[in-house]
Amino acid sequence: MKKLIYPFLFLVTGFASFAQEKLLSDEVQIQNLVQESFEVLFSTYDLNQIDQFYTPDIKILENGEIWDMDIIKGILEDAKKRGASERVNKFDFIETHVDQNMGYTIYHNYATFSANGQINREIHWIESVIAVRTTEGWRIKNLHSFPAKKE
């Protein structure tokens, strides 16, 4: 009987975590995707996970420039080599909507940059993301970013 308990517990635990992820709405999954992509890619510069967040044909519209996957990787590699400042992101989601296999979200993105415990820069952007559902889950296909007006 003891031999059956451990496999049963393993199955129940695995099912519970899978079910919990499925309970998240598509809107929340897209918002989580945005937050996690910034934490992994733009805060830790972990390019090994870029495919977990972006489609291969991603386009980022960044302050008058169009970035494709190669440009994004180059920017992140350069930032990592420079030992860029520590970055902390905060998001204020305005609207998120899903229609079948495509969704979008509009949000404020606040980033605080610091080095040696001292804040050296704070930036506020307004951004939008278009995400598509893939067989691996939601991925960002387009991100449009521009600086928010100073108040």
Rank of each mutant, 00 (worst) to 15 (best):
T135N: 08
I140A: 04
H97R: 09
Y104Q: 10
E27F: 00
L33N: 10
R82W: 02
Y45K: 00
K149Y: 06
E86L: 00
D57E: 13
N120T: 04
I5V: 13
V28P: 08
D57S: 06
R133C: 04
L11C: 13
F91A: 02
I106N: 13
L24T: 07
A16D: 07
K150N: 07
G64I: 13
Q29Y: 01
H108Y: 12
W125C: 10
V34P: 07
F18I: 06
I126D: 15
I123H: 03
F8N: 10
H144W: 14
R82D: 07
G137S: 04
F18Q: 10
L76G: 07
I94G: 04
R133D: 12
I94A: 07
K22A: 07
L33A: 05
T105H: 03
Y104R: 08
Y110W: 00
Y104F: 12
K22I: 01
W125I: 11
L11D: 12
N116R: 05
K73T: 09
N32F: 05
H144E: 13
E62R: 14
N109L: 05
D92Q: 01
A79T: 01
R139H: 10
E62Y: 15
D78C: 02
A131N: 11
F93A: 05
K90D: 07
D46F: 00
E95P: 06
D99G: 05
Y107R: 01
K22D: 07
Y107V: 05
G14F: 03
L11Q: 12
I130C: 14
A16K: 00
Y104W: 11
F91E: 04
I5P: 09
Q118R: 10
E39M: 08
S43K: 00
T135C: 01
T112P: 01
F10K: 06
T13Q: 11
E21S: 08
E86G: 02
I60V: 15
I71G: 12
Y104M: 11
D57G: 06
F93R: 02
N116A: 07
G117M: 05
T134I: 01
S145R: 11
V132P: 06
V98L: 05
I140T: 05
D68N: 15
